[in-house]
Design a protein around this nucleic acid. Structure first.
Lengths: 227, 227
DNA sequence: AAACAAACAGTCATGCTTGACTGTTTGTGA
DNA sequence: TCACAAACAGTCAAGCATGACTGTTTGTTT
């Protein structure tokens, strides 16, 4: 019963721990050194694991990185779930959701994923592993966002706006990798959240009236679009 | 008079041509093989230039790539200017502008720039060259977009929406590198163009049911993007 | 306790990229 | 036409990442 076929049950505790350390070291190095800078030697050193031990678990660099992708996916899911759990309900929820997504895509987790993403573009073997995985994560994120915003996707246009939001934070995350500017990001997402609320039919949620009035329509005949 | 200091005037024609070929080969390889896959040997082979000739013009790989960045910037500017010249005026202009940006950020030019962008993140020498350049290009693109859309940036929120638009197309471009269809992009940008018009006070432009309440449910799935 | 199996550790050869070196061609001025 | 200088071409050694190989330790089962 407890011994299915082979005889290694308590040992795999060490195995798990070692793999864990290797994967975490890999992610760290991806952020610090980039993909090509993440050498297998550096990984083993960083993880405090011998070279042979590493090869034992991950025979090739691709194996290691592919496993890191999966590990990363796990982290991403946990992070998002944790952040989503403590979102405020009510009028400022849209903005909170958007900011949460923005922060997530500005984290080091995204940076590491970006490295893999870009590397996978020109590495068929990596693409085969990263592609489906990232697609799955994307769908999951989309679903989560729809759920968090509590919108009806069957309404035309809503799905596209959600996708736009996710692509926006992706773009912001990309911009964030070179020059960190959290203030810019927050300003943009703040405005985005307002626009989103308006377009989704949540005007009541975030009334922007006070700040600008109807100054938006300064150019094409003042249509006086108050709300 | 015609010989300032040294004696090479007609010869530099060849020089320019050779540099041009090298830079174009570099860009091509960046798209095909990625940054680390772009070896100096491959570049010289692709360009039909000898190894020594290449080293003569670009002593190190960094020099070559940095020059490629500048060359790329040139291309990006030309592409955008050319596309902007034949934009339709009138009601569908916003959508046309947005689509133009979307297409631009989905081109191979963006792909090559992305490789450099990501590589520069973990390469100080490269960052020093790419950072300011990309920032300048970003500002230029922003300015161009403002001009093309003919919006007043002094109005609160407008600047952020323009930035959001650019970050959105950047995110879409990133998604496009792995394998994202153009249809998705067009749907998203189409919807965003509408939203942008509404938020900028151009409702008259993109005739769409009014924005009050959740009028979106009124419009069903039709909404093709002709007309 | 002993034997067996798996996990772990260290070392080394292979292959590749880089850029430095030397020779050749092309263009310019006298 | 000759001399000089710059651009160009090809080759080669150094440095490094990779992963294959062999030996050692740890854990389990009888």
């Amino acid at each position: 019963m407890t011994t299915p076929a082979v005889t290694r049950v308590p040992q795999e505790e060490r195995t798990r721990a070692m793999r864990q350390r290797l994967l975490e070291a890999t992610v760290e190095l991806l952020v610090e050194k980039g993909f090509s800078g993440t050498t297998t030697t550096l990984v083993s050193e960083r993880a405090g694991v011998s070279r042979g031990a590493q090869l034992h678990h991950f025979p090739t660099k691709n194996d290691l990185v592919v496993a890191a992708v999966a590990h990363l996916t796990e982290i991403r899911g946990q992070e998002l779930a944790a952040a989503a759990a403590q979102l405020p309900r009510g009028k400022k929820r849209t903005r909170a959701v958007v900011e949460m997504l923005g922060d997530h895509f500005a984290s080091s987790v995204f940076t590491a994923a970006l490295e893999l993403w870009v590397a996978a573009r020109t590495d068929p073997a990596l693409l085969e592993a990263v592609g489906p995985l990232e697609e799955r994560v994307g769908r999951e994120t989309h679903r989560l966002t729809v759920q968090l915003l509590d919108v009806d996707e069957s309404v035309a246009g809503v799905r596209e706006l959600i996708q736009a939001t996710l692509d926006l934070v992706r773009g912001l995350g990309l911009a964030n990798t070179l020059g960190d500017d959290a203030r810019r990001r927050h300003r943009i997402l703040d405005e985005w959240a307002r626009t989103l609320d308006e377009s989704l039919g949540f005007e009541a949620r975030s009334a922007r009236t006070s700040t600008t009035g109807d100054a938006r329509s300064a150019r094409t005949s003042t249509t006086g679009r108050s709300t």
